[in-house]
Design a protein around this nucleic acid. Structure first.
Length: 656
RNA sequence: GGUCCCGUAGCUCAGCUGGAUAGAGCGGCGGACUUCUAAUCCGCAGGUCGUAGGUUCGAGCCCUACCGGGAUCACCA
């Protein structure tokens, strides 16, 4: 056996350097290691890694096949870990020695933290969830929360110190609507008195407000004032033309939608009059005529003035909501290091604007409003302070970013926010950059696509929004059905069973959502989300559970015989190679802020293990060495499966 | 109209900095449990990678145009 010393470079880098040397000595050409195209060898060919040698045909002035032969021969000679090669067309397939893999497995077998990088001294903040406090969490929040949590875990594994935060949108007209409705129609009811979860309780009053407002608005539309508003609009040719264009598009969409759903499309639902009242005039009505609108606005003013009664009501309602949110977060298994409340931060940022104005980052218009000119960054002019000196959304975000930097001194900030705010974050980041924020280069908007249902978009107005709590209950119930059919847990007490079903059900839901790349819009089919077979969370958990079962049966084992195992099966090499690639994959996932790649990795690893498990016996392996080796390998696979799922926020049961 | 994102099998999705015959799962069909958990495994069927050009030894991936879906272009948040 060739002595193997631990080398600083990994096998991939060693191959690359070997190729650089070979090309230099054989053909006298200089290439860089990064320029080499290297892949894992495809299953149908022999080998572990493949180097593409087409690009060297020019400098070598030889056929790709010949280059492959020459480089391959030299690599076997020069790189100790390469045991053989074969060439097909321009592809040089390299085999890594079994020795190397066996020793690698031996090395990681003792590492409790394999896959996790040492701290890199950098600190990153991840903001996610950030709900409004006027209604409960829904499916969209779940995607956000899972992405945020998972990204935070991945960054931590990659060596960052991570601070998880959210901005709670606890103020504004929305919560005032809930407050007002409760005041008028609540008759002193509480979550406790009605047996309702706090966030749902408050959400009901928000809905109630909207219903009452709609009633009021409908009546007004028929009134003289309403008809006058309509006539006035109809007289404005330009406005009508514009509306008709938009209306035509809306009709087209509605028709397509109806056709897709097999429903009938009615023209009456899309008249110009309806369009006017629904899409053009509603805000004006709310702000200028609506009694309820006036009352809600008055309440907001009182809140801003610190009116005691309003403040008390506000605190009460938000407290109910937080109680509900906490329950949902608990069920999802997520937590935060710090909460920022909009009621505290909404006035921030004005000082920053003043300083920026002095530095010339912003400019003032004649009316006193303050703007930033981002046209040279291919963006537009953007208002940062109204003429009356009050702030807008982005002002607050500028202030909040600075506040956070003061609080934690982070190097990076990741905002997990849906892609409808892409433009906002471009503007925000560019503005912070110009203000000279030291963390400017570390700003990242983790933008994700909306979640659609098989029936189309979620629309709160049409009641098609999928509630987070309902969804969680559903997947856990489905896990329970599955478990009962299987009857593998009947010797456990009810509590232990329930815990496993919770873990399995949530695994199905979480994996289903995280496996899709963030930037893609995703279709959420409730039926598929509770699937537990195939490419699912429970499938990955099951691989782990099978290993635990084997390990239980194996009992305490002396695994030293494993090093005598000399000839690896293909399935075993596959598994070890995947384990080998794991740390780099985590690093890439962290760099790209992409949890979906970790989900895919976990699935691939589980799949390889399931196949291995099916094809080879572990406890009844042909030799002592094979048995010890396979137990060792299984343990290492279990460790990486567990870590991978942990990075996705998925727990692993030891039975299921 | 300007800008951005997406378009891969019936459905849901992978496809790493361009590399071999484009891969999984679900659904369909057919097999494998007296043997370590069958929430598993194996086989079959299923594709003009939205369309048309271009760059390249080589394009699902890069460039251009177009088509389809979505978002955004507020002194809303």
């Amino acid at each position: 056996m060739r002595p193997h010393k631990l080398l600083p470079m990994n096998i991939i880098e060693r191959i690359q350097h070997g190729v650089v040397d070979a090309v230099k000595t054989l053909y006298g050409a200089d290439i860089t290691p990064e320029s080499i195209t290297m892949n894992s060898t495809r299953k149908e060919f022999e080998g572990d890694y493949t180097v593409v040698v087409f690009p060297y045909a020019k400098v070598a002035r030889k056929k790709p096949e010949q280059i492959g032969e020459e480089v391959g021969a030299q690599l076997v000679e020069q790189v100790a870990e390469i045991s053989g090669y074969n060439v097909i067309k321009g592809f040089l397939n390299l085999s890594v020695s079994d020795d190397f893999w066996v020793q690698f497995l031996d090395r990681i077998a003792g590492q409790d933290n394999y896959g996790r990088q040492a701290p890199n001294g950098q600190k990153v903040m991840v903001e996610f969830s950030s709900p409004n406090t006027n209604k409960p969490l829904h499916l969209g929040h779940i995607r956000n929360i899972l992405l945020g949590w998972s990204t935070a875990q991945i960054l931590e594994a990659a060596g960052y110190e991570v601070v998880k935060v959210q901005v709670v949108n606890d103020r504004g007209i929305a919560i005032c609507k809930s407050m007002l409705a409760w005041q008028r129609f609540g008759e002193g009811a509480t979550p406790a008195s009605t047996g309702t979860k706090g966030d749902h309780f408050v959400g009901e009053y928000y809905v109630r407000f909207e219903q009452e407002f709609q009633k009021e608005y409908d009546a007004w539309q028929a009134s003289t004032a309403g008809q006058q508003a309509l006539q006035q609009f109809l007289a404005d040719e330009k406005a009508v033309k514009k509306a008709e264009k938009a209306l035509a598009e809306a009709r087209k969409k509605a028709k397509n939608e109806a056709a897709r759903q097999g429903e009938t499309y009615t023209e009456e639902a899309h008249t110009l009059e309806r369009y006017f009242f629904k899409n053009i005039y509603k805000n004006t009505y709310f702000n200028e005529y609506s009694e309820l609108g006036q009352a809600a606005k008055a309440m907001l003013l009182k809140w801003e003035a610190g009116d005691e009664e309003v403040m008390q009501l506000w605190k009460q309602m938000n407290a109910w909501v937080y109680e509900g949110f906490d329950e949902t977060y608990d069920k999802l298994g997520v937590s935060f290091d710090k909460l920022y409340f909009e009621s505290d931060t909404y006035l921030l940022g004005r000082d920053a604007v003043k300083q920026g104005l002095e530095k010339g980052v912003f400019y003032e218009k004649e009316d006193g409003s303050v703007w930033i000119d981002l046209t040279d960054a291919k963006l537009d002019h953007k208002l940062v302070l109204r003429k009356d000196g009050t702030s807008v959304y982005i002002t607050q975000d500028i202030g909040t970013a600075q506040e956070r930097y003061k609080d934690f001194g982070v190097d990076k900030m990741v905002y997990v926010v849906a892609d409808e705010q892409d433009y906002h974050f471009q503007v925000l980041f560019e503005t912070l950059r110009r203000l000279g924020a030291p963390y400017a280069d570390g700003l990242f908007h983790l933008s994700y696509g909306m979640v659609d249902l098989p029936t189309g978009k979620m629309k709160s107005r049409e009641g098609t929004v999928v509630d987070a709590d309902d969804l969680i209950a559903e997947v856990v119930a489905e896990a329970k059905n599955n478990a009962e059919e299987r009857d593998t847990l009947s010797d456990l007490n009810a509590e232990a069973q329930q815990e496993i079903m919770r873990q399995v059900g949530l695994a199905a839901l979480k994996f289903f959502i995280i496996k899709v790349q963030p930037q893609k819009r995703m279709t959420f089919d409730p039926k598929e989300s509770v699937d537990m077979q195939g490419q699912t969370g429970p499938y990955v958990q099951n691989a782990y559970v099978r290993i635990q079962s084997v390990l239980r049966k194996a009992g305490e084992q002396d695994l030293s015989a494993a090093s005598a195992y000399k000839k690896l099966e293909t399935a075993e090499r596959d598994l070890i190679a995947q384990l080998y690639a794991f740390p780099a994959l985590i690093a890439e996932a962290a760099e790209a802020y992409d949890p979906s790649s970790v989900a895919n990795f976990s699935y691939d690893l589980a799949k390889s293990y399931h196949r291995f498990y099916h094809d080879y016996s572990i406890l009844n392996a042909e030799t002592k060495a094979a048995k010890a080796f396979r137990i060792k390998l299984s343990k290492a696979v279990a460790h990486s499966l567990k870590l991978a799922l942990e990075l996705l926020g998925i727990e692993v049961p030891s039975r299921m």
